[in-house]
Structures are given as C-alpha cells and as structure tokens.
Nucleic acid binder design. Structure first.
Lengths: 246, 246
DNA sequence: GTCGTCACAAGTGTATGCACTTCTGACGAC
DNA sequence: GTCGTCAGAAGTGCATACACTTGTGACGAC
C-alpha cells in the first residue's frame, strides 16, 4: 500500500470555478458594474450553471460581487470611498495582528520573517516579475498574521488581500522599493519587541498614500479599459489551456 | 399608480434558506459535528436541493459550516480555542471601530446611543425577555460600529455577532446587568471624547470572562444536549408561520 | 471471532429542463 | 418626436434526473 500523496486535489468543480472567477474579478478582467451572464460564463468554462451559481453565490457573500434577485450578479464598482474604508479597516486588523505577533512570535519566527522580507527586496525588477512582487507583498502581510497565532486574523487579511489586489497592483507601479524597505523596518522593530513603533510604521505603511487614492483609482480605470496587465497575467495563469474567450 | 412599498421582500428562496439555516446553526439547533443531510433538510423546508446547496455553500464560506468534497457539510464544532481567538479578533475590530466613532460621531448620535443603552438597561428581566436582551446587546455593538462611518466594520461585527451568538447567550445568563452598565460607561466616555478610556473599557468588556470560557462552553454543551432554549426561541420565530411550500 | 471483500444503499456533485421575471425593440396613440 | 404598450427574446430561479462517491452490512476466508 503505497502512501498516497493526498487526494486533496479531488476538488469540486464549484471550488475551481470559485477560484477562477475570483481571479477574474479581483483583477478586474470583468469590468466594474458589468453584469455576469451565467449561461455564457458557464459555456466558457465548459460547465453547467449549477456549480457556477454556487461559486457566484459565494463570491457575492464575500463582497466580490453584488447580487440582485432576478437580475443576477454584477461586478463590484471600483470606487474611491470603498477602497478608502477598506484600507482603514485593514489598518486596524493588521495592526491588531501585529501587536499579537509581537507578543507571541518566537525569535526564530521573526528572523525567518526578516529573511523573507530581505529575499523579497532582492527580487529583480521588471515587467514580468511585477506579478511575483505583488504576490510577495501579499505574502509578507499574511506571514505577519500567521505569527499572531490567531487564524481569524489570517482569514480576514487573506480576504482583504483578495479585495484590494487590483488597487495594490496599480499602486505598486510607483512605490515598489519603498514598500519593501518599510517591511524591513517593521520587522526590525518587531525583533526588538518594540510593538508601538512597529505598529506605527505598519499603520503608516498601509495608510501612506490614501490621500492619493482618487488618482490611483483613476489610473486603475485607465488600466481596466485599455490593456489590463494584471488580468492578462492572472487569467493567463488561472485559465491556462482553456479555449480562448471568443 | 400607488407608490409601492418596496418590492424588496421579493426574496429568493436561497436567501430565505440562508437565513433560516443560519439561525439554526448559530443557535446550535443542529449539533456540533453533525452532518447535514441535504435531501432531508430540503424536504423539511419544502424546497429542492439546488437553492439549499447555494445557502449551505454561502454559510460554509462564512465559517458557519465546514465543507468536505463528496462528504457534504458539517456543523462547526463548539471548541474553546475557536471561541477564544474569535473574541480576541472581535476585541481588535470593535476597539478599532470605537476609536473611529469617537472621532466622527456627532454629539447627537452619541446621545442617541446613550439613550438606547439606557432603554436596554431598563428592559425587564425574565426568561421570555432573555432573547430580546440578547438582541439588544448585539444591537448596541452594531450601533457603535455604525457611528464609525465605515461599513466594513459594521459588516465584520455583524458577522461576528452571528458567530458568537450562542456563546453570548450562555454567557449572558450570568452577567446581564454587568453588561449593560458597562455599555453605559463606555458611552459616557465617548461623549467626553475620551477615546482611550472608552477603548480600554470596551476591551475589558469583551475579554472580561475569557478565562472562564471553558466553563461557558461546557454549559453550552449541556444546553445543546438537554433543552436548548435559544434554539427553541429562534427556530420558533424563524420557522414560525411559514407555509409548507409544497 | 476477526478481518477483508463486495454489493447495495445512501448521499453528494453536476447537468438539464422548465417556469417565471426582466429586458428590448417595434408599433401605435397623441 | 415622445411616450406608453406589448409581445418576443433573453436570463435568472428552482426542480428534477442522473452519475459518481462514500457509507454499510452481509458474507466468506482464515
């Protein structure tokens, strides 16, 4: 009896659809306000409407889509106010997680986090690597949450990461280097167990350019309606060998 | 053309099922670890499995149920550690909301909140009113979140309220009076714009009896397996006069 | 008696079909 | 030309059907 390498990959169609549609939505491959046509989308994915609807329902409950009875699902609009309050919320959650992490994380775990931040900083620049840098940025914040030892924070921050992915992507075109040195600074203070300074740095890290959010959203709209690089990357990955969308 | 009183109540079967099953789950009318039989539950509700599954899927994504491929949905176990980290998370979110509320709420809004807290305090005691007292407690915290002007906090706190409803119910058998005077104290400091004191009070209000959480959970299990009063109330309400929709 | 095997029952996952609602565009009243 | 009306098209909401997976109990080997 050979030890089976986990049949976890026996995934339901619903789950795969959830991930794929989420990727499309968070990258704004589907446009803000656009209505989702269940029949067409199901045909594109080569499945029936039943599992697709389960995925859409779930996405709606998580705030990625809005649902209206008898009128289906719509892509969430990309509005500055929504992004602003989400960042405000994010700051509270992440700072809370950081304070717990500062109390609870072992010295080794913090050293490992610092090594991760350093590796990320040394990642090469370039258009192709941009997506990877984005992923590393998200991962830094998730790792920070893991160290809190409280999975509620991790769960919440993952959800936030999904929801702000597009804005973060746009924003990172401008402040990649700053972001990564800020990560380093935060970890350094964590290693000194200086929670207050680390918290202040993290708060500023998150809310730093919130006053420019309107410009970022504008840039986002421009990207969406011209040549959405994030969508191209993400969908390239997640749709893989799927037939071309007519 | 008479002005129609909002056809918002044109709700989908999926949405009604979501609410009803959520009520059953949060009141632990279904028991921890129990597997949900879709066919039977659908029959009970007089609907087909399709809308029920959409509701279950949504509940699972929100953490009320756990889903396993080909093995359906299970009621989340009621474990002390899970409750503990949820309360820890809740404290961070609520304190964050309170600080924003302290900055932004108008004097009038705070006065209204105080009036609400006072009315709640004066609500009569008794078994029958217990459910109402529970609802008022939840509402106090939601109102506090509303004053932050940030709907992300409200959304989050509502979700937390749903998830801790049962534990709160058990816990409130013992500390009803204390709870309500603590609410009053918090609002009083908010009205003085003393965010730090209000925050400290709120934090203590939430984490106060966390060291006794194991006992509370034990009491919860006893209730679940004997004569679950919360479930009786809630299901009484939510199943109520619904016609048996063939 | 214990264990493995196998067939049937039970249950979940997905596809399909149909009813009902919403959308759209043509037509006619004014 | 503008507006209201209405019929057909398009689309969502739900029920049903079937395939496939998992659970269960009887039977036989040992």
């Amino acid at each position: 009896m050979t030890s089976i390498p986990e049949p976890l990959s026996v995934q339901r169609s619903t789950d795969r659809l959830y991930e794929r549609v989420k990727a499309m939505v968070t990258a704004y491959r589907l446009r803000p306000g656009e209505r989702i046509n269940e029949v067409e989308l199901a045909r594109q994915f080569g499945v029936s409407r039943t599992p697709l609807r389960e995925a859409l329902n779930r996405l709606a409950s998580e705030g990625f889509l809005s649902a209206t009875a008898n009128r289906g699902y719509h892509i969430r609009p990309l509005d500055p106010h929504g992004v602003l309050i989400l960042y405000e919320y994010r700051a509270v959650v992440e700072v809370g997680a950081l304070r717990l992490s500062c109390e609870r994380a072992s010295d080794e775990a913090l050293a490992e986090l610092e090594a991760f931040a350093a590796r990320s900083r040394d990642e090469p620049d370039g258009d192709v690597q941009a997506l990877r840098v984005l992923a590393l940025d998200e991962e830094f914040h998730e790792r920070l949450a893991v160290l809190s030892g409280n999975d509620e924070f991790l769960r919440s921050i993952r959800s936030i990461n999904d929801r702000i992915r597009f804005v973060r992507w746009i924003d990172m075109q401008n402040r990649r280097a700053g972001t990564q040195s800020e990560h380093m600074a935060i970890v350094r203070h964590l290693r000194m167990r200086d929670a207050n300074t680390a918290a202040a740095l993290l708060r500023r890290h998150i809310t730093r350019r919130l006053d420019q959010i309107v410009e970022v959203i504008k840039a986002g709209y421009a990207e969406i309606y011209t040549d959405n690089a994030l969508a191209a990357h993400v969908v390239g990955e997640s749709m893989g060998p799927t037939a071309p969308r007519q």
